[in-house]
Amino acid sequence: MNNIIASFFSASFLFIVIRVGIPLLFASMSAYVASLSGILNIAVEGIMIFGALFGVYFSALSHSAWIGLLGVIVIGTVCSLILAFFTMKMKADAAMSGIALNLFASDISIWLLLIWTGSKGTSASLPSKVLPTINIPIIKDIPILGQIISGHYFLTYVCIALAIFVYILVYKTPFGMHMKACGLDADAALSVGIKVNKVRLISIILSGILAALGGAYLSMGYMPIFSNNMTASRGWIGIAANAVGQGNFLIVILATFVFAIAQGIVNNLALMQLPSELINTIPYLCVMIGLIILSVRNYQKARKNK
């Protein structure tokens, strides 16, 4: 038992938290940039599945992980353009379009997998490539810190860079200001000459790319193959983390890593003789608790304002 507790305070535990947290962070950033500019993107999960599947497929076709990654970015963009077409151009309900894309992704991915590999379960028979693992020179030799932040997958560092990019974009640039304005009051934004549709289109494309990269992280690093339902609701957890943050990016990141720690705990506890089904519910319980705290807070705020 003591060993288990000790394991939570080790460098390797933090390493695991980052490892399991990165796909969640991709997902929550995806939800964040879309919702900030006033678009509901609940298709994060579906786009992640596509990202994961096509990353594997393109890299196998081209024998190059990098071309595979490029394909992932393209597929993320295509998915978001489809969403944008339905919600912005055809004025379909955003929730409906999102659900449709999610359902489509989860089923079509199995079908495509069957066509490409002959298996409904995994892409093990495809010679897909994996993105490299990066050992940061100098830092990797620093005790503890090196163990925690060095030796992650390539996309881990991309994700961190993108997080910094999103932060600067949202809080330091006019474009970020316009995104917020579009999300808070599109009419007000329009009245001062902000091109609301353009801002939203850019945001949704960014959102799609982030989600697709999250998928690629899973199938081109975390695991070397695509397997059925490998996203395991990470997209939804990202959406929940974004909801907890209520427009504040740092809180979104914080919430994401609370969920990541829960996931890390699961990974550690899995070594014990506990029923794994029960342990696996921990991250989802965390999400529920997070959402409950959020709604209680909102309720109190609403009462106070009354």
């Binding site: 200001m177 316009h178 917020k180 304005a181 808070l184 009051d185 007000a188 934004a189 001062v192 902000i194």
Partner: peptide, 14 residues
């Protein structure tokens, strides 16, 4: 106007 923005932000928006 956007309520959660400051006066200055609202004036300069866009």
């Amino acid at each position: 106007l956007i309520p959660s923005f400051t006066v200055a932000q609202n004036i300069t928006l866009g």
